[in-house]
Design a protein around this nucleic acid. Structure first.
Lengths: 213, 213, 213, 213
DNA sequence: CATGAATGAGCCTTCATTCAT
DNA sequence: AATGAATGAAGGCTCATTCAT
């Protein structure tokens, strides 16, 4: 009865592929609207209109508004981690400072692309810090992954003699803090500058400090 | 600190004093609720209930919800600046490093006290980055004031030979970024640590860098 | 501050009285709409329009749609019990048959007045028989109260020698069943007949049976 | 009635037979879901899922939700009448009391089997008493058929001298009322009892009355 | 005929704001 | 000034129905 099986290679994976693409399209639209209107102003209708479908369709792909946003967060998180891992692999034979530079540039660029989204989701996580624990957890887990990679990198730096080991545990946090500020200021300034230009003083201060030698 | 008290004649200043106190009470309540529930979950009814008055009364003191929140932001901003100025004055005769330390501790403590508020208001500013320009402006203006004081401090640092002058323009931003991360992580960690313990590695890294000398 | 106490006799009870009247008005309107449109077709907007207020107002008096309907059920239930108790008291010195007749007439009349409501609420109870247990419970509890009174009445009948005691436990149920059918057929027939005319054969059959003696 | 079936050639009647079986399967599924979830909670998707087909398929067999439910009601109605007629034929040579007992047992058992359905459909009929006249009519027509058969039976009873003729016109209604109550209480009690055990006191009271002789 | 994704009108509910007392 | 009931626009979500494949 259901044996309409023509000579198709992957009937199921076709379905699933299409479903995945539709989900991705919705998430892209959601990010756009989110970036433009902010979290609470983003109505399901707006997202639907942006994709060019009707509201009901959104609910064929996501349980509710909340789940849609979580899916968006998760997807972008996974994308960033993939980027970073690619970069780390690419630069395997490179000295610490250059690797760190590449790593941070990845973050900077990804964050710039998705900045409004990130701030909006951070905001959301903070607001519901108490309830919806699992939600915040997944968000923090992602950043912990990034931190982890920075720690590994830091160990290379220590081995190379490029880093003092005493404060090593603080480096990832401080780097990420400064990165976040960088991105934030970029956004507010509305004058995007080349990534390397922004990273140079950051790295210089991080490695050599503000005090004269 | 709240020294709005000019030497005015009784009748008016009495009125105004009471009005100001009522406003302050409302703002305190608003901050509490905001901290507990987040921006969008904070209803006017909740604030009113917290103060112990009825909704209508709030509208005798503030145009609308938006203005109330702005007033709250402005008040806390002014308070922080007052704190910083007091601290700067207190430490006038002190060397750069100690002054910076005191300055940052002020920020850290004030931010810890009002953390939820700050994150909630930041969120709000970002969301309406496009509309409500004047609002974001006032918020940024406040932080520019803080930055300004850090710059002054930096100049002292350069004069004392405690800072390299080349990257001086980046110092305030980097310091504030790291401070913000510090506060953020404090909140998420839910294990408040003594301010000085947190500031020590930050200052060490800032001044001496991560690279061995 | 709240000491506006003018020479009013019952400031609070005034408030409460008005609140109760408003609730009652809403419930009356709800019953009308319910009777006209049925349970699922009854929208909150319709009820509000019927009372002449806006939707929001309904929510100042009832948690949600469900609670409003429950309140309606409870109120009508209490009214019926009050009617019955009044009737029972009035007829204390009367013989069994007459008392039963009066009792049943009360039910018949109350049920005719609120028939659509009753059927609609019964329906609702049946539907959610599994979930919302407490809800159905309250409804059944009310009818159990009616049954209880019928049992008491039956005891009088037995004592008077007007009833065979063997099947006494079945009498309340059978009487109520026949009453319910009576009311139902009245509704469907759309030709309301005088209560006594309907009750006479019912009582005759109940007491004397269908078989010739 | 449905005798559109002329003596046609196989292929078409094959088609129709299959079509009828598919319809029956859908109606069975619908009844299950209806019984479990209630009228308004029963979604077309649920029915489809229960049959193991997709929603669209339902619409190949029934105009819309409403027609599907009506078809279900009609089918169960026809089934009950068939049962009753079989029973009446079987007991042709039996005295009145036994025939009545058999007749009522048929109703009781059929009603128990389909109870949730019946209550749900009754509810539906009552709700739309005003619109959809024809719908309620078909439902009532069915019960009128049952009543008719009870009347015939009653005539036998009168002839046999087992029934007083004066109230004969009320007997069918009263019997059906008590039956309905019986079934309803069975459902709510959730402790199914043997049919005869339930019917005995009912018949006793109906025939001999509650008053001692 | 079967499929199931898409549709979109419709409903419940929330909450900032108003205004008569 | 204080009160708090009333307002009603707005948004999230449901689900019967359609239709292209």
């Amino acid at each position: 009865m259901n044996a309409r099986s023509t000579s198709r290679s992957k009937p199921q994976s076709m379905r699933m592929r299409m479903k995945e693409e539709a989900r991705a399209a919705i998430l892209d639209a959601a990010e756009q609207v989110l970036a433009e209107q902010g979290l609470q102003a983003t109505r399901m209708d707006d997202i639907a209109a942006r994709v060019g479908v009707s509201v009901g369709t959104l609910y064929n792909y996501f349980e509710d508004r909340q789940q849609l946003l979580e899916a968006l967060r998760d997807m972008r998180g996974r994308e960033l981690l993939a980027l970073l891992d690619t970069e780390l692999e690419r630069s395997l034979q490179t000295p610490y400072r250059a690797r760190l530079h590449g790593f941070l540039r990845c973050i900077l660029e990804h964050s710039r692309t998705h900045f409004r989204l990130l701030s909006v989701l951070l905001e959301d996580s903070l607001r519901h810090g108490d309830s919806r624990e699992g939600d915040l957890d997944r968000h923090l887990a992602m950043w912990r992954e990034v931190s982890l990679r920075l720690e590994h990198l830091g160990q290379q730096g220590v081995k190379e003699g490029a880093l003092r080991p005493e404060d090593a545990s603080h480096y990832p946090a401080m780097l990420l803090d400064m990165m976040q500020g960088l991105v934030l200021r970029q956004l507010l300034a509305k004058q995007p500058a080349p990534a390397d230009e922004l990273l140079a003083p950051l790295l210089r201060c991080f490695l050599e400090g503000a005090a004269p030698r």
